[in-house]
Amino acid sequence: MNIHKIVLPTPFPVGDVNVFLVKGEALTLFDAGPKTTEAYETLKTGIRAAGYEMKDIDQVILTHQHPDHAGWIDAFPKANILAHEYVDHWLRQKPEFLEYRDQFYQYHMIRQAVPERYIEKMLQIRGELELLGTTPLTHFIQDGDEMPGHPGLKAHYTPGHAQSHLIFVDEKTNTAIGGDLLLETISSNPLIEPPIDLSMDRPKTLLQYHQSLTLLKDLNVSKLYTGHGNEIENVNELIDFRIKRDHKRAKQAYDILSEPKTVYEVTQKLYASLYKSELGLTLSKTIGELDYLEQEGLVKVELVGDVLIYSRT
């Protein structure tokens, strides 16, 4: 791939985000940073440093819908915008979708025994949507699709961190644009999100994430261009390390279940210093670990009233 990396600032704890300008039969920008003035100016400067102007971009392809990756699609009104179909719901932000989103999270937080005062606070946090673009998709990407203007560059569906997540593998060079699937120094959190079918069923995101990492390992990519941080060349070794660490954390969750507990109670024990300030993140991580233990047959779950109770088998 003829690829030019542009590093953009974000207001998020994760820090800077990487976007990639790829020259082929089409001039393509992979991801677009958050919708802030600082990111816009840096993006414009980066595109100029590669010898182009913003108006030269033919298409923007998104790895997933999170606002640090999908903000400045609005800066390219004449370009095609491509991503997984699920992304379109977030970009359009229709009232019925936002209402469904709130209902989904409220329903599952009640089942997790999250106190009502926290549920109300978390549902009010929509600030990140302000940093997300609002230009609808022009094309939907499906698993296995070849990217327009880039022969041999194919999409692979890799949910877990996000329900819309895609990576793009160049079959000629065996390199890939990986979004947030695997990062050099930090873990890609398997965040709880509404499912792509917009039902009330909760995706088991850690299990999805491990399946996506296994897919990446099977692809045997030689170099991964990541959404944050440096490129990765020891891809398969790092995948093994990440999965092993998830297993270790799941063991800690198992130890906490000496007596039956709710998701919220396990989260309080597992992330005692973090859960109050990062409740959504820590709940997602705890649920993932409990899903893993349930899959391994080590715990069982039953619905007591409106609340899920986990216990050892």
Rank of each mutant, 00 (worst) to 15 (best):
G46R: 06
T28I: 06
V60F: 04
K55Q: 13
I47K: 01
V60G: 01
G24I: 09
T28H: 00
A32Q: 02
L29F: 08
T37E: 12
N80Q: 02
I61R: 10
E25D: 13
E38P: 08
F76M: 07
L21H: 10
R48C: 13
E41Q: 14
P34Q: 09
P77L: 04
G51M: 10
W72F: 13
A75V: 00
P77K: 03
T63W: 10
T63D: 11
D31V: 08
T42P: 11
K35A: 14
G71K: 07
T42L: 14
H64R: 03
V19E: 03
D74Y: 01
T36Q: 14
Q65H: 15
I73S: 00
D56G: 03
I73C: 10
I47F: 04
L43F: 14
Y52G: 07
K44Y: 09
T63H: 12
G24K: 11
L29K: 05
E53T: 15
K44R: 15
A39S: 15
T42Y: 08
M54I: 14
I57G: 00
N80A: 09
R48N: 07
Y40I: 03
P77R: 08
G51L: 13
M54N: 07
A49P: 01
H64K: 04
Q65C: 05
I61D: 15
L43I: 13
E53Y: 07
T28P: 00
T45M: 13
A70S: 10
A50V: 09
G33Q: 13
A75N: 03
V60E: 02
L27C: 14
K44H: 04
G33V: 10
E38V: 11
L27W: 05
V19D: 01
F20K: 05
G71M: 08
D58I: 04
E38A: 14
G71N: 04
Q65K: 07
Y52C: 06
P34V: 09
Y52W: 14
T45W: 08
P34A: 11
F76V: 02
T36C: 12
A26K: 07
T36M: 13
V60P: 02
K35P: 05
E53G: 12
N80T: 01
G46I: 04
R48S: 14
K23Q: 09
G24L: 15
K44F: 00
Y40Q: 06
K44V: 09
D31W: 08
T37L: 04
I57E: 02
P77S: 01
R48L: 15
K44G: 08
P67A: 11
P67E: 12
P67L: 10
D56M: 02
E38C: 14
G51R: 04
E25K: 12
K35D: 05
D31R: 03
A39G: 07
V60W: 01
V22M: 03
D68A: 04
G24H: 15
L43N: 12
L43Y: 10
A32R: 02
E41M: 12
N18C: 11
